[in-house]
Write a protein that binds this DNA or RNA. Structure first.
Length: 355
DNA sequence: AAAACGGGGTC
DNA sequence: GACCCAGTTTT
């Protein structure tokens, strides 16, 4: 890569950013705790979606000690609806690492941050550059898109080779005197001008040098990874209606929604009907004889990036003593359900039932 | 090196 | 319906 071209890009980028920086109030802080929290919340998450969560977290947990002292369930509950729930568990674990092992003092180096749960190359670079002014280039979706187009990089960003290429290029470009400005400028450019679709090339400072623009192939960059088709799953959630109470359980690890709460789950190989559900209820040993009354909802289709969930909610009116609840089930009042962290698909169904 | 992990906005 | 978002961890 031509060194003069890199220098020119850096210069034009910073000049552009001086006049066009996005004014986001929660960005000006140099407080490592806030930056860490913000960056974790924003992993694979849009600003507008993450912003209210950031403010709620900061209000409830003003510093790392408060976060470390909290129960995991409360952290998950605050995270409810944001997705990628391992982020909440890792955030909580890292808070405890910082308090228990580091005396509540934040690391100063990239390598130390990398050693904390839930912090990878992007987040570590973001924290040390924004909080401490260290010259580590961030590489996120925005940066990859900008670099791929500006310099005609054909590597797939998600591949190992691509990661290396984009990181090396970003690191070569960064202004060691102003790393925070540079990083912010790259992400602002990707978010406001060099957008995934219909980028505003006519108002871009790099339009005369941009590889993709010059080749009229802007939307061909970055090269996309071949999409994998989602796994299809069929869930039947059993809502035992025992007067004012029902049963909930907690999901294990190594699957979607790990550590969140849910209703007793029957995973089926197709959308179930009542006969199939009755059969499985007995096979699981949850009841001894067919339950009545029973009502099945229409299947709710919940489409996620890697899974399509077809969720049927099964309402079973039953007496408490007819249910043989496995250990681990919790009997809770309907009115108390909002205290637990549920997947969105469950939360929305409950909401609809109440309205 | 690939796959898994959520939810929502946009075109 | 496809793509993608201020990515990280697990397999």
């Amino acid at each position: 890569m031509n060194a003069d071209k890199q220098k020119l890009f850096r210069k034009k980028l910073l000049a552009w950013h001086l006049k066009n920086r996005r004014k986001l109030p929660w960005r000006f802080s140099r407080n490592p705790y806030r930056i860490w929290l913000r960056e974790v919340i924003l992993q694979q998450t849009r600003l507008e979606q993450g912003a209210p969560y950031f403010h709620r977290f900061l209000k409830r947990f003003p510093d790392v000690r408060q976060l470390a002292q909290a129960e995991l369930d409360e952290v998950l509950h605050l995270w409810q609806g944001l997705g990628y729930y391992s982020r909440a568990r890792n955030l909580h674990a890292a808070a405890r690492q910082i308090v228990d092992q580091l005396g509540g003092r934040f690391p100063k180096t990239y390598q130390e941050w990398m050693g904390l749960k839930g912090i990878g190359r992007y987040t570590a670079a973001a924290i040390v550059s924004f909080a401490f002014g260290q010259p580590y280039a961030v590489v996120d979706g925005n940066v990859c898109r900008v670099l791929a187009r500006a310099f005609g990089i054909r590597d797939v960003p998600q591949s190992a080779k691509g990661k290396k290429t984009f990181e090396q290029l970003a690191q070569a470009l960064i202004d060691p005197q102003r790393p925070a400005d540079f990083n912010q400028a790259m992400m602002d450019l990707g978010a406001t001008v060099c957008t995934p679709r219909k980028p505003l090339c006519s108002s871009c400072f790099w339009r005369h040098e941009c590889y993709a623009h010059q080749h009229q192939a802007v939307e061909q960059f970055p090269v996309r990874k071949e999409a994998v088709s989602p796994r299809v799953r069929h869930f039947a959630y059993v809502l035992f209606e025992m007067n004012a109470h029902t049963f909930i359980t907690r999901r294990g690890q190594n699957d979607i929604y790990s550590h969140l709460y849910e209703f007793p789950l029957l995973e089926m190989n197709r959308v179930p009907d009542e006969a199939l559900v009755q059969q499985r209820l007995i096979a699981e040993g949850w009841i001894k004889a067919p339950a009545s009354p029973m009502r099945l909802s229409q299947p709710v289709v919940h489409k996620l990036t890697h899974q399509w969930l077809y969720v049927t909610f099964v309402h079973v009116g039953i007496c408490r003593h007819q249910v043989h609840a496995p250990s681990g089930w919790r009997r809770v009042a309907w009115a108390e359900l909002n205290q637990f962290a549920f997947p969105q698909v469950i939360r929305k169904y409950l909401q609809k039932q109440l309205s």
